[in-house]
Design a protein around this nucleic acid. Structure first.
Ligand SMILES: [Mn+2]
Ligand SMILES: [Mn+2]
Ligand SMILES: [Zn+2]
Ligand SMILES: [Zn+2]
Lengths: 152, 152
DNA sequence: TCATGGGTCTAGAATAATTCTTATCTGAGA
DNA sequence: TCTCAGATAAGAATTATTCTAGACCCATGA
């Protein structure tokens, strides 16, 4: 498992130091869109002496190399997203949590044309949605719903 | 002209101080999505002694009262947008400039459904596009194209 | 007129996120 | 083993934003 990560870093010309591997292990596998501080907290479990500066350096390096993306979706925080395929984001207005929506979950039409009409060539786009968890509908049984609710 | 602004503020229960009127005059009429510093610079022409704290206070107050919106589209800066109707944003990747795209300029389908599938009720959404000014097409005449030339 | 008080304003301090600086460490070769 | 480019840690610096304190402004009423 570490092996794979080490290989992946090497492949991109990134020296796989202990710190970098630990950051990669966490951030490439999460679906949580963590900020730098969250990455630091998670990674410290494995590499207690890693510094925040190293986390920033590593995340930016990974972004440059195409391993992840930096997103500035709201407030004053950049978050990191290992999903490099085009997709959309749904922001929980109560908690700030960011969920992914697959590209195919919704449809955008005429995006490129609309930009071209302004003299722009679009390089990427996404839909950013904000909302709140819907009131849980009345439980059908007495058993508490378990696990995460399936999509679709 | 100031009269109208004063009226508009009064209507919302905002005491129309000189500073607030000056901020409103600039920010409610611009299409530029300025950040607080830019508002400060513009407003200082009229009210040289206004402070940055007052600009922030005023902009937040206006946002609360529904006169404008705060947007965190990218980088580490909040910008302010007097357009309160739903619309989309196109970000110039070279300059950071933000353009509006009318809601009708493109079409999004299944947004609410996609969010509902995740257990969310959408309160708003928009498409965020990034791109660069298209290479100016070959000039038809020998006259050099005028206006600021883009770097890179 | 003068005191009171609510709301407003400014300057500067404080905070928070991020970046920079610099000295120190490491490890892959020569 | 020696060397040095690259990597790291710690803390200073920067940038955006918010907070704190006190001064100010002006309507009201004794
Ligand atoms: Mn976070
Ligand atoms: Mn700005
Ligand atoms: Zn994502
Ligand atoms: Zn806008």
């Amino acid at each position: 498992m570490n092996r794979e990560i080490v290989e992946r870093l090497r492949h991109l010309g990134i020296l796989p130091s202990a710190q970098r591997v630990a950051v990669a292990k966490f951030v490439l596998q999460t679906t949580r869109h963590p900020c730098a501080e969250e990455v630091l907290a998670a990674v410290r479990e494995e590499v207690p002496m890693i510094s925040l500066a190293t986390v920033y350096n590593t995340l930016h390096l990974f972004a440059e190399k195409g391993l992840l993306r930096e997103l500035a979706l709201s407030e004053g925080k950049v978050v990191f997203d290992p999903r490099m395929d085009p997709h959309h984001h749904l922001i929980d207005e109560d908690t700030g949590a960011i969920l992914d929506l697959d590209w195919s979950a919704l449809r955008v039409e005429h995006a490129a044309e609309a930009a071209r009409a302004q003299g722009f060539e679009v390089s990427e786009y996404q839909v950013v949605l904000r909302g709140r968890r819907a009131a849980r509908r009345p439980a059908r049984s007495t058993a508490a719903p378990k696990g995460k609710r399936r999509a679709r």
